[in-house]
Simulated assay, not measured.
Amino acid sequence: MRKKFVQLAAVFTAACMMLCACGTNNNETSDSEQGKDTSGDTVIRMATMTTGFPLPMHHANKTGVFDDLGLNVEEEFFDNGPTINEAIASGDIDIAGVGGMPSVSGAISNNSKVIAWMEDDESSVQIYARNDSDIVSAGKGKNENYPNIYGTADNWKGKSVVCAMGTSSHYTLLAVLETLGLTQEDIELINMEGVSGAAAFLAGTGDLYVGFNPQWSEFYSKPDEYTCVATCADTDKKLNTVLIASEEFCENHPDLLVKFLEGMLKVQNDFYDDAKYYYESMYEWQNTFGECSEELAQYTVDLQVMRSLQERRALFEEKNGSSEMQDTLLSIADFMIDNNVIEEEDKQKIIEDKFVDSSYLFEAIDNLNAE
């Protein structure tokens, strides 16, 4: 079991230290980076992000659950889904937790497969403004169809927004703008990844910041200075996090994928059965990368609710040729088409390629139920 910390850029260093602690990757090439360890066993190169939803994967690796299943898992940390997709494309990552939008773009560019649901993500992607913003002073309820979103179209129009393009944060921003009758052309997008973007916003860059937990933790903890003015949950759009695997790994190591899922599902089920254990694990996890209060850890647990094995299976069971999981991701694809992020033929391609593959999940759940 090894860890490598990659892609955690340090911008506005002093402010970043307040938000998130991270390591750097060295330039040495090990046997495991070629997909084999020194004994010749296959290494599963797992990508996670420093946010709440990958906790079950990380915890299974840290506590030896994967080891007990005979798996050799190497954990690498990334800023966001697009950088993970790049690593999959270059052959450096086998399996990863990503948001809905990167899972669609990864299926288009890499033929990667969605093999499991992680958690719902609508409430954990949040948009913050400083309290002196006219969006905050306008308050909620200006749009009767979306009463929890602060401000009006006039308040939002022309604002500079710090947000990582191609991520669930970007999806959330576009969804909120749509409720206001606006598009990305109506705002100034400052494209920065979550951690450095949060540090930049803290230092005064931009009028708004969009990020996922715990990138916005500094703003959440200072309600006298910052206000959450919208989340994806305040729109009518669905958003979730999923587990994806590279096409090559699916083809060459289906047995390892099933075992990996058994380990991750075991941890998820333990969290589902024991809320205190879930909270304690989240608190420890979030304090690995920065300072996390007990309140924030509990808030994260409340946002990212675990589901039972039966509920997870139901998301992937097909009815009339499609599953709830596929329908949700295709609705994200439709939204990406409407916002000129992808083309209609891209959507048709991933449907034809059967980008949602339930076979590994179903086998893993059957194995766990048989124990």
Results as ranks from 00 to 15, higher is better:
E317P: 03
L208K: 12
A275Y: 10
D302N: 14
H253R: 05
R312W: 14
V305C: 05
K222D: 05
M264C: 12
E318M: 07
S281L: 02
L239F: 11
L303K: 09
R312C: 10
Q215E: 15
E248Q: 12
L257T: 00
L303Q: 14
L265D: 01
E251V: 09
D273N: 15
L257H: 05
Y283Q: 03
Y209G: 13
Y226T: 01
C250Y: 07
W285Y: 15
E218I: 11
T300D: 07
L309M: 12
L256N: 09
T205H: 07
E251L: 14
D236M: 02
A245I: 06
H253Y: 13
Q304C: 13
C292M: 08
E262W: 07
A297G: 07
N287F: 03
D255M: 10
E247L: 07
Y278C: 06
Q215P: 00
T288C: 07
D207Y: 14
A314F: 11
F289I: 03
K259E: 13
P254V: 02
A233N: 05
G290M: 06
S246K: 02
I244D: 04
F212A: 09
S281E: 02
F212S: 13
P223Y: 00
A199F: 12
D236F: 09
C228E: 00
D274S: 08
C292W: 00
E291Y: 14
V301T: 06
E284W: 11
L296E: 13
Q215I: 01
Y279G: 00
T241L: 09
C292V: 05
F201R: 08
E218K: 13
V210W: 14
C250Q: 09
W285T: 00
M306F: 11
F201H: 09
D207T: 11
E262T: 08
V242D: 02
V267W: 10
L315W: 11
Q310V: 13
H253C: 02
D273K: 15
L296C: 10
A198L: 12
Y283T: 01
D273A: 15
Y299D: 10
V267M: 05
R313I: 14
S217D: 12
T300P: 02
G211V: 06
G211I: 04
A198W: 11
D270H: 04
L309K: 07
F260N: 02
D207N: 15
Q268A: 08
E284N: 04
M264D: 03
L256V: 12
L202I: 03
A203P: 05
E280A: 04
T227I: 10
F249Y: 04
Q215N: 15
E317N: 08
E318K: 15
S293D: 06
A314Q: 01
S221F: 01
S281Q: 06
Y277T: 01
K222W: 00
A233R: 09
